[in-house]
């Protein structure tokens, strides 16, 4: 029966491959992603609207990094993660759910514990440029013109409701 279900799923043109993300406020942490073997994202500076911090936590080792988009290290990162990293982790849990983030980072989170309290990796320097350019690429979608072409291709991508 399980095999039959799997075969039926594999022979459908329209199935959901990417789990939906949950809505969240974007003002503080406009960008979060699980990619390149890291939880990574961009955190807006609390004091300077033109500055952002690029923060990341590596899957497996849980090494963490935080610097400005100009590659200057965040002053608050020493042996323990700064508030930007905490904000990143909190928003990732809102967006993807704790299970998915924990599985990606390969961390055990006991019932009721917070994600950050279960990781104790070392600080590391990772270049902010890669993540920052992925964020800019992400933002560039918002500047793309609309289209009223038929786009038949989109029949493969129905809007599937999230649980309300």
């Amino acid at each position: 029966m399980v095999d039959a279900d799997r075969t039926a799923w594999e022979r459908r043109s329209v199935v959901r491959v990417i789990p939906p993300v949950e809505p969240r406020k974007l003002a503080k942490v406009p960008f979060v992603e699980l990619a390149d073997g890291r939880l990574q994202g961009v955190v807006s500076s609390g004091s300077d609207i033109a500055r952002v911090y690029v923060s990341s936590i590596t899957a497996g080792t849980h090494a963490f990094a935080c610097s400005t988009n100009n590659n200057r290290p965040c002053g608050a990162v020493h042996s323990s993660p700064c508030k930007h990293l905490h904000a990143l982790a909190d928003e990732a849990v809102l967006q993807y759910g704790l299970d998915r983030v924990a599985r990606y980072l390969r961390v055990e989170v006991p019932e009721g514990a917070s994600l950050m309290s279960c990781m104790s990796g070392p600080p590391e320097r990772t270049p902010a440029a890669v993540v920052f350019s992925r964020f800019l690429r992400h933002l560039a979608y918002l500047e793309m013109p609309d289209s009223t072409e038929p786009l038949t291709e989109l029949h493969w991508f129905p809007a599937m409701g999230t649980v309300r």
Binding site: P23, L26, L142, D146, S147, T148
Partner: peptide, 22 residues
């Protein structure tokens, strides 16, 4: 007939907010 409006977006824009893109 059918007629279409498509707008580019990112994954964090979802639910009723998508109408604002149009």
């Amino acid at each position: 007939v059918r007629t279409s409006l498509a707008a580019a977006k990112v994954d964090t824009i979802a639910g009723p907010a998508v109408w604002r893109l149009m």
